[in-house]
Nucleic acid binder design. Structure first.
Length: 605
RNA sequence: GGCCUGGUAGCUCAGUUGGUUAGAGCGCAGCCCUGUCACGGCUGAGGUCGUGGGUUCAAGUCCCAUCCAGGUCGCCA
């Protein structure tokens, strides 16, 4: 060992001991005679003092040459700092008076400073990720991630789960995310797909009788990146047999309760449960942010006679095909937001709504008027009759200072516009979401199918192996849009952090669902034959879920992006800035893989 | 693929209506300084204004194209 202690260990209890530390030069303060070095390792920072009277001229001369990020080994005695204690350091009560100094390695001047204060752009951080990861904030995030994974493994082990690895090289499955493909050398013209999730394997493991499976599983999806999406990401993936929805939810809930208790020092109440229908109606979203109220209220019946033709015509239209959704008028009340929402801001919000597919955004600013009456302001306000205003006042709990927003369109559009507006207002404009407020809930029983305008047919909301409610099975033939699925998503502060379903375990139901999705028996055999085959050999009732580990850690760490909780993430165009990857393959590699590329080879700059 | 924001010194940024030699803070280098802790003082070096084209007497600034980073919509069963 090159050290006796870490840079975070030493306290007053170690006074007068001779110790050896190793680490990086965080900072150097040279007073001409006495020199201070802050020595850093991942455990913390310790002040090293080079006093020429104690360390001697040779060591002092060397200390004079030290620079940021050099790697040192120092030995010396632990001394009290007396009244010079630094309250900002865990080791602030002591310092080490060096008597020996070894430079283990020199360092180039880093492109950015390795400390908490330095603001650095992501492009540079990613290029020098190995330096970025030296920063305490990143080290905290990765250590938190380690602790969470460790707790998860312990939790599932204690609950009888078995961790089983499944293939990453597997078969392309139609539908769902675009797969990364890997060409086969030994099978010319054929490709593996990188697993987008272990979904089918874990169902097969249930057929095999493993009963309770868990895996910290790497998944791959070739889709465009986001703040919370990387091309490779990690799921805490689980599956159970002989259970129903409630059992999975109990297990999933236990995991986050344990994580929050042990790592966030926060006791979670039992998770609230809400049906998908309720979430969409009241919050316009399948992942409502419950850190603030601002519910969406349906005013479709009110709109018929309100006097405002835009609203009246929105609910009057009856000639639409049923799957397009009915016309509705809904509203939300930004209580007391009048002062904060200027005319300019309202214009921005209107643009925001249009960007989400709204034709416009009707709003009403409510101010205190004469004689204790309310003064209704805004383009929509003047057309609304007095009686309708009074009804609005009651139904939206309107008081002076409120701002009302209306959506009038087909239900789907109104939900997505008002749902997004609600979050924009609550989180970004009005600051109603407080830090360290953890609003978990389950959103369950989503529809099994939804109409796809693009495909002009019903498609699976979740995936085609999701089980319908038994009492809804007949509707697969008669009322496809209203078949409820045994599905559940765990939502935290408006972010979907996990989800799953009970699976279909009998071939007959599976056949009905495939048929409803327009998948013929032959297609089903070709694409999922292995699964159907397995289901015919005594598949137990089963179901499961998966947590998005990266998102979970991002929220726990208070990070802005999952890139801050992934050691080596990719950029928005799925590049690795540090490796300069991907790169063109060589002719020899391509030949071995029986490939020719159609893309022009980019000349490297 | 669409829309939005950004790209100026190693880093973070400013740069007016297009006008003389493009600035600041931090970092870096040298010198000074024996109790600092994001030490302090003095001096100094450091620029293909992302790239290519255009307009103009004159472009960091205006126009077009393009690349990169980020956000967002589509997409992510």
């Amino acid at each position: 060992m090159l050290r006796t202690h870490t840079c975070g260990d030493l306290r007053a209890a170690h006074l007068d001991q001779t110790v050896t530390l190793a680490g990086w030069v965080q900072n150097r303060r040279d007073h001409g005679g006495i020199i201070f070095i802050d020595l850093r390792d991942r455990a913390g920072i310790t002040q090293i003092t080079f006093d020429p009277d104690i360390c001697g001229p040779a060591v002092h001369d060397l200390a004079n040459k030290l620079r940021s990020e050099w790697v040192l080994q120092i030995s010396g005695a632990v001394r009290s700092r007396g009244d010079k204690t630094n309250p900002n350091l865990a080791t602030g009560a002591i310092e080490v008076f060096a008597t020996a100094l070894t430079v283990l390695n020199k360092a180039e001047t880093p492109p950015f400073e390795i400390d908490e204060h330095a603001k650095v752009g992501e492009e540079v951080r990613l290029k020098y990720r190995f330096l970025d990861l030296r920063r305490p904030a990143m080290q905290r995030n990765l250590i938190l991630r380690h602790q969470a994974v460790k707790l998860a493994r312990d939790y599932f082990d204690a609950n009888g789960f078995i961790e089983i690895e499944t293939p990453i090289l597997c078969k392309h499955t139609p539908g769902g995310a675009r797969n990364y493909l890997v060409p086969s050398r030994v099978h010319p013209g054929s490709f593996y797909a990188l697993a987008e999730s272990p979904q089918l394997f874990k169902q097969l493991l249930m057929v095999s009788g493993y009963d309770r499976y868990v895996q910290i599983a790497r998944c791959f999806r070739d889709e465009d990146l986001r703040q919370d999406r990387q091309p490779e990401f990690t799921q805490i993936d689980l599956e159970m047999s002989f259970i129903d929805m409630d059992d999975i939810m109990t297990i999933g809930e236990g995991l986050v309760r344990g994580l929050w208790k042990k790592l966030m020092n926060h006791e979670l109440p039992p998770l609230r449960r809400m049906t998908y229908a309720e979430a969409m109606a009241s919050y316009g979203s399948d992942k409502p942010d419950l850190r603030f109220a601002m519910p969406i209220v349906d005013l479709s019946d009110w709109a018929k006679d309100c006097g405002f033709s835009v609203f009246q015509s929105a609910v009057a239209a009856t000639d639409r095909p049923s799957h397009a959704g009915r016309g509705v008028v809904r509203a939300l009340n930004a209580k007391g937001a009048n002062e904060q929402l200027s005319r300019r801001t309202l214009d921005q919000l209107t643009e925001f709504a249009k960007g989400l597919g709204a034709k416009g955004l009707a709003w009403i600013k409510v101010a205190a008027g004469a004689e204790g009456k309310l003064d209704w302001q805004g383009p929509a306000a003047k057309n609304i009759s007095d009686a309708a205003r009074e009804a609005l006042r009651v139904r939206l709990d309107v008081a002076a200072g409120d701002v009302l927003f209306f959506g009038a369109d087909v239900e789907k559009t109104v939900c997505s516009v008002l749902g997004a507006l609600r979050v924009e207002l609550g989180v970004n404009r009005l600051g109603l979401a407080k830090p360290n407020d953890w609003q978990f809930l389950w959103v369950h029983s989503a529809p099994l199918f939804e109409w796809s305008e693009e495909a002009q047919q019903f498609v699976a909301v979740h995936h085609p192996f999701t089980a319908p409610y038994a009492e809804d099975i007949d509707r697969i033939q008669t009322d496809r849009g209203h078949v409820r699925s045994k599905s559940y998503d765990m939502v935290l502060n408006g972010c979907e952090i996990g989800g799953g379903s009970i699976r279909i375990h009998d071939a007959e139901t599976q056949g009905k669902v495939f048929a409803a999705l327009g998948i013929s028996a032959e297609d089903a055999q070709r694409k999922f034959g292995f699964l159907l085959h397995a289901l015919s050999f005594g598949a137990p009732p089963h179901g499961g879920m998966a947590f998005g580990l990266d998102r979970l850690i991002m929220l726990m760490a208070g990070a802005e992006s999952i890139r801050d909780v992934v050691a080596f993430p990719k950029t928005q165009r799925a590049r690795d800035e540090m490796l300069d990857c991907p790169t063109p393959a060589g002719d020899r590699q391509l030949k071995e893989l029986h490939l020719v590329t159609a893309a022009p080879i980019q000349a490297k700059a």
